[in-house]
């Protein structure tokens, strides 16, 4: 069931996920379309998440936006006190401005591995950190090993923060400990995206790939064909997987395997490295005292890609 409508206010709206925003001209959504989208969200009982560009919107837009309860996703440069989610592209980060916020850090793997200190510092100040590895598809045996060590090293910092009474939320390490089931990308299932052209897309990535690949518009309504394929039960690899924190990015799936319901080998391996690091983290925290007593242990497993497990059957 659809629950969220993501509205890209401009073609230059910031990316908060794996897709890249092509550099090009600004194109602000038409004000009438914005009003129509808000009305539709009210009718369909959808929660709106507005995604902002890095410039200030005209006053009349802000007035229309404020006619409905919503969340704001804004780039770091445009941070104002009312941003619910801040996206960060790059490493020149003023941690003070991010204190207590939810931050999305978009980075290449090599950059992430080279900025361990910066990530640790961020974890100490933000309410929640989501790291999006933008070149996940290039994961190799070499950087796979390095990533595993990196996760374990940052995990030590998380342990220390817990000991100091903080409760850092970090998608790559703590989500798996907290979850009880798969919690992944909801594109096409629980989320739909409205682009500045007034048409709906499975997610912003699908819009930027091909604006003709829409799944409805403000006049026709939603028209998501083969919608079942966005649900977990229709994903043979994922439905029996326990890397519950995996992003399971539908857009990446489509790019790498040509099917929205099938993750790439690299996505599975990365998610399992994170899962295994979470397992180690949970054990480490529990050695210091009682922690999440109602949650079971995370089992040790002998594979990094559940596809291989499936093929053995």
């Amino acid at each position: 069931m659809l629950q969220y409508m993501i509205i890209l206010l401009d073609d230059a709206s910031t990316s908060f996920c794996h897709y890249e925003v092509p550099s090009g001209e600004r194109r602000l959504i038409h004000l009438d379309d914005l009003r129509a989208a808000i009305r539709l969200a009210m009718i369909e009982n959808l929660t709106i998440q507005f995604v902002y560009p890095d410039y200030e919107l005209p006053q009349e837009y802000q007035e229309v936006i404020d006619t409905i309860d919503h969340s704001d996703i804004k780039p770091l440069l445009a941070v104002t006190p009312d941003a619910d989610v801040v996206t960060i592209n790059g490493w020149e980060i003023d941690n003070k401005s991010l204190s207590g916020r939810v931050a999305v850090l978009r980075t290449a793997m090599s950059e992430l591995l080279a900025h361990t200190r910066a990530v640790k510092d961020l974890l100490a100040v933000v309410q929640r950190l989501n790291v999006v590895i933008t070149d996940l598809t290039t994961l190799t045996d070499t950087n796979r090993e390095a990533y595993m060590h990196w996760l374990n090293e940052v995990g030590q910092t998380v342990v220390e923060l817990y000991i100091n009474g903080q409760s850092p939320q970090f998608n790559l390490l703590t989500d798996r400990m907290m979850l009880a089931a798969m919690n992944n990308c909801g594109a096409g299932d629980t989320c739909i995206t409205l682009a500045p052209n007034g048409r709906f897309y499975v997610c912003p990535g699908f819009y930027y790939d091909d604006p003709e690949n829409d799944v409805g518009d403000l006049r026709r309504g939603f028209d998501i064909k083969n919608r079942q394929l966005y649900k977990l039960n229709y994903a043979p690899i994922c439905r029996q997987c326990d890397a519950w924190q995996c992003r399971r990015c539908v857009w990446l799936n489509r790019h790498t395997t040509l099917e929205v319901n099938t993750p790439s080998h690299e996505q599975c391996v990365a998610a399992h490295l994170e899962r295994n690091a979470s397992r180690q983290l949970l054990t480490s925290i529990r050695q210091k005292g009682t922690f999440l007593p109602d949650k079971p242990e995370i089992n040790e497993i002998d594979y990094l890609d559940p596809f291989e497990k499936l093929q053995e059957r």
Partner: peptide, 14 residues
């Protein structure tokens, strides 16, 4: 091999 994954995991019910 990523392109083969959907084919190799396809089952009747799905």
């Amino acid at each position: 091999r990523n392109k083969l994954r959907p084919f190799l995991t396809l089952d009747r019910l799905t």
